[in-house]
Write a protein that binds this DNA or RNA. Structure first.
Lengths: 198, 198
DNA sequence: GACGAATGGATAGCGGCACTCTCCGCTATC
DNA sequence: GATAGCGGAGAGTGCCGCTATCCATTCGTC
């Protein structure tokens, strides 16, 4: 309960409707918002500052949907503070070029490409200089997943909370995918072992 | 530099070879280890305690490879402190059953299934009670990715550092996949838009 | 209408964690 | 022989996510 007071102070939750100077009323929407905050923090690993940033965008009523999606995407895709290896940056560039528009992406230097470059830099730094070769199969698998994601968003109806659905789908989706990847490792390696010594 | 002294104290880095009581020599292996620690922390988001745990297993010389892989997997797959929704647990159970051995997985209650249940619980709590329906396409995509992962490990040669390669591949891979997923979203949504109004 | 419990609001404090600072004794170097 | 720098150990710092305390008010109920 003191945590809720804290979130209120931090502006993560809207204040309740004051029925009297020391009595506020909270409805389902407040509860829902609280659960959203907890989900973003616990599963998505967002900091309070980032959650506030995201919620601000979610709550913005004017502004185009497209612009809001972009802003939120950037907010929830913050790269770590890894110094970028120029070679890794080149790898990212090559990858982006390879899958460039019209059917690909041509995103210049967003947080997403930064993330990717940071991860590949880290890989290089520990002696895995060819990790970028895995990017193409990764994209192949991720295209299937991305299609499922878009389907999911679309079927939820293009209501007012598309942005919210996207945030949830992205962050909780990341966590789910982490787990599913590990399960897939077990499944595939079992199949390989079965085929091999068979 | 004081950070390195700190890591030494915390047992994340092995002490250098003392050439004299106050002069230690550090070779490439030490540097490599340092970079590994930084990568696990900055990209993998591991805490110092978890890094130590992982490194302990990596450094263990005896013990079977299989057992070490399992231990490390558990260490780098720690779920958040989310209370589990029984319905979400049921969803996970159903998913596991659906893809059960011999070609699937039958992992009982490991950290991985915990992670999955936690994520689905969070989804439910924010009103996404049907998120588990996305699990099958997720697995389909992840199987492609998992195959690439195993290929990668295999082609790196079954040297002494398989566990290390697995840790790196898993954690840095997670970060890479996060980024690639976002790029795939952009790519696929562009394709859909192109097909739709076409 | 009196009284204890509870609420809203604000301020200060706590605990964990990843560092960082400082001091000490020593020794390689000039 | 002065001094700069190292290794080692303990205490201190800053941030962040809470948590505890305090006060005035007011709701419940008797």
């Amino acid at each position: 309960m003191p945590t809720i007071k804290y979130y209120l102070r931090e502006g993560l939750l809207p204040a309740g409707v004051l029925t009297s100077p020391n009595q506020a009323h909270y409805d389902d929407e407040h509860l829902r918002r609280l659960r959203l905050v907890r989900a973003l923090m616990e599963v998505g690993g967002l900091s309070i500052a980032t959650v506030r940033e995201v919620l601000t965008v979610v709550d913005t009523r004017d502004e185009s949907l497209h612009h809001k999606l972009g802003t939120v995407q950037e907010a929830i895709s913050q790269p770590g503070s890894v110094e970028l290896d120029p070679l890794a940056v080149k790898d990212v560039q090559a990858f982006c070029d390879r899958h460039a528009a019209p059917d690909g992406f041509d995103i210049g230097s967003s947080n997403v490409t930064q993330m990717l470059a940071a991860a590949l830099s880290a890989a290089r730094s520990v002696g895995h200089a060819h990790f970028q070769e895995i990017l193409d199969p990764y994209l192949e698998g991720m295209r299937i997943i991305a299609k499922a994601d878009l389907d999911y968003i679309a079927h939820r109806g293009a209501r007012d909370d598309v942005i919210e659905a996207m945030v949830i789908g992205t962050l909780i989706g990341d966590a789910v995918l982490k787990a599913v990847r590990r399960l897939a490792h077990a499944q595939v390696s079992r199949e390989v072992l079965a085929d091999g010594p068979g």
